[in-house]
């Protein structure tokens, strides 16, 4: 009788865990096009000396041949400091109070639509990116 009760309880539990499942996949191959030509121009390109003591103006302009720009991220030593959704923008780089003197890497990453036709591309959640780097030097003297 005890075994029968156990059987009934386990049957109830088993029956309800027996849930319909189908995880079949329809895999589609996506051919990615050649990345677009992304040209990044900055006011720093024309400066011979990138040393600054209190602030530095950084201007950029992004040109993409496919014409669909998503955004640009600006990093200092791999820390994101600014995000812009325009192809032309400028920021003042001002060191924090305890910033140490020395060289810092300034990166600009520009993201553009891939036009691959993939799921993420059609949801505007996939991009090609190009980046440009400059070494800026903080010197308080």
């Amino acid at each position: 009788m005890k075994a029968l009760r156990l059987l009934i309880i386990s049957l109830f539990l088993f029956a309800n865990s027996c849930y319909y499942m189908d995880s079949s996949l329809y895999e589609v191959e996506v051919t990615y096009p050649e990345p677009p030509d992304i040209i990044i121009r900055s006011n720093l390109d024309s400066m011979d000396d990138l040393t600054f003591s209190d602030s530095l103006l950084f201007k950029y302009e992004v040109e993409i041949d496919t014409g669909t720009f998503y955004l640009a991220d600006i990093y200092i030593d791999n820390t994101l400091i600014y995000r812009s959704d325009t192809i032309r923008d400028s920021i003042w780089i001002v060191p924090t109070a305890n910033a140490a003197e020395g060289a810092y890497q300034l990166d600009l990453r520009a993201y553009a639509k891939t036009f691959s036709g993939s799921l993420a591309d059609q949801l505007d959640a996939e991009s090609f990116f190009a980046d440009s780097s400059w070494v800026i030097i903080l010197n308080y003297e």
Binding site: A15, N16, Y20, S24, Y26, E27, S118, L119, A125
Partner: peptide, 16 residues
Amino acid sequence: YSTTGAHANYKDLSGQ
């Protein structure tokens, strides 16, 4: 107790 269902999928390199 009975169970069944329907399933459809699309998958590529970028997601599903």
